[in-house]
């Protein structure tokens, strides 16, 4: 017993040291966000000579609208995208992983192909499409594609998870007389909870961090998302605004950290508590 508690303590120490090493850059950023902006790059120590909150105060209102507006916009797009991906990708993945039909391999290949092309050559035709539809300065170009299973990464992810589930599960349900929809709904979905949570986490965080799409589609400041707003804080020519950018970057990390802490708990509760009695 003593040996095992000792080994546990050792593991904790090792982990804490490792965590500190990993997040050192973030700690430096945190400290810097409390320094006067002009000292951040000239006095780089971890212990500031002077502490100020002005970066937070200035950053909050720097773009003529309170920063909460951009947090709200990002939240809206994040939640909308999560819903869209959960809905559309799970349907697609189930069909591709479990249903027998001639085109399934072709479709999967096609899906994978869409993530292999760098988006810089796709973005202009896509922009033209959405501009023609008059959807610039709306969230439609950012959200609609999520409801149409265009995030192939998650389709692939869910396909892999479904394929790792024993077939016997469906077969048992099928013997009980369940059709594909019942099996999807009552057997597969509950069992793929870890995959759904993973999709939720990644979709939320990736859309939260997405920069290029919102930059192009949202030109009005009131519609900006967090990354576009953050980029607007720093003047690329003069490097001014680093302090406010750090402050607002850290502030905007808070919602996604909370989201992650909350969501990752559900990864734990996968198959162990569901399906199999």
């Amino acid at each position: 017993m003593a040996a095992s508690s000792l080994s546990r303590a050792v593991r904790h120490v090792v982990l804490v040291v490792f965590v500190l090493l990993m997040i050192y850059p973030l700690l430096w950023m945190l400290v810097s966000s409390f320094k006067p902006s002009n000292l951040i790059l000239s006095q780089t120590g971890l212990f500031p000579a002077e502490i100020t909150l002005e970066n937070y105060a200035d950053g909050w209102d720097a773009l003529g609208s309170p920063f909460s507006l951009f947090l709200g916009n990002s939240l809206l797009i994040g939640v909308g995208s999560v819903i869209g991906n959960l809905f559309s990708c799970s349907l697609t993945a189930y069909a591709l992983a479990r249903l027998n039909f001639r085109m399934s391999k072709v479709y999967l290949a096609l899906t994978l192909m869409t993530i292999m092309l760098p988006f810089h050559v796709l973005v202009i035709p896509q922009y033209i499409l959405f501009a023609e539809l008059g959807w610039i300065n709306t969230y439609i170009p950012l959200l609609l594609p999520k409801f149409l299973a265009t995030d192939a990464v998650f389709i692939f992810l869910m396909v892999q998870f479904i394929r790792s589930l024993p077939r016997e599960l469906d077969q048992a349900a099928m013997i009980d007389g369940a059709g594909p929809f019942r099996i999807f709904w009552s057997v597969i979905l509950p069992l793929m909870q870890p995959a759904l949570i993973t999709t939720t986490i990644f979709t939320f965080i990736w859309t939260w961090n997405d920069y290029f799409g919102p930059l192009l589609y949202l030109t009005r400041t009131e519609l900006y998302t967090v990354p576009v707003a953050l980029k607007s804080l720093v003047d690329t020519e003069t490097q001014s605004g680093i302090g406010t950018m750090f402050a607002m970057s850290l502030l905007s990390l808070v919602p996604i950290v909370l989201f992650f802490v909350f969501a990752q708990r559900y990864i734990i509760k996968g198959i162990a508590t569901t399906g199999i009695k």
């Binding site: 809905f87 559309s88 349907l91 697609t92 189930y94 069909a95 591709l96 249903l99 479709y107 899906t111 594609p145 409801f147 149409l148 299973a149 265009t150 389709i155 594909p180 999807f184």
Partner: peptide
Amino acid sequence: FLLPWMIG
């Protein structure tokens, strides 16, 4: 099942 995906 693939309807959304096909439209997309």
